[in-house]
C-alpha cells in the first residue's frame, strides 16, 4: 500500500515563510520563482514524491495549504 499526495496552496494568501518546506518529510515543496500580489515567493509542490502526510498543512501559520491523498497499488 502506498499513498500519493497533492498539495494545493492558496498562492494569494501564502507569505512564503518556508515553515512547510522545513517540515516536509519528502522534500516536495519549494518556493516559487514568481511572486504573488503582496510580493512573496509562495510555496508550491515540486516533484511527485508527496505522500499526502499533511505535515505542511498542520504547521502552515496562515492555513493556506489543502492536502489531498489517494491510495495507489
Amino acid at each position: 500500500m502506498a499513498f500519493k499526495g497533492v498539495i494545493e496552496v492558496d498562492t494569494n494568501l501564502c507569505k512564503g515563510c518556508s515553515v512547510c518546506i522545513a517540515n516536509c518529510p519528502t522534500d516536495s515543496i519549494q518556493l516559487s520563482r514568481a511572486v504573488n500580489s503582496k510580493g512573496y515567493h509562495y510555496a508550491e509542490m515540486k516533484g511527485d514524491a508527496c505522500v499526502g502526510c499533511g505535515a505542511c498543512g498542520v504547521v502552515c501559520p496562515d492555513s493556506v495549504i489543502t492536502v489531498y491523498r489517494v491510495k495507489i497499488q
Binding site: G5, V6, K15, P61, D62, V64, T66, Y68, R69
Partner: peptide, 29 residues
C-alpha cells in the same frame, strides 16, 4: 487527486477569510 473526497487536510471552517496580519511564519497563526 484534487477531489473533495481525497482531502486529508484543509483550512478549518471556523477561520474567517480575513488575511492574517501576522508576520510570515508567526506562531500565532
Amino acid at each position: 487527486i484534487k477531489r473533495p473526497e481525497n482531502i486529508v487536510y484543509k483550512r478549518p471552517a471556523l477561520l474567517t477569510d480575513n488575511v492574517m496580519h501576522y508576520c510570515p511564519g508567526c506562531s500565532h497563526g
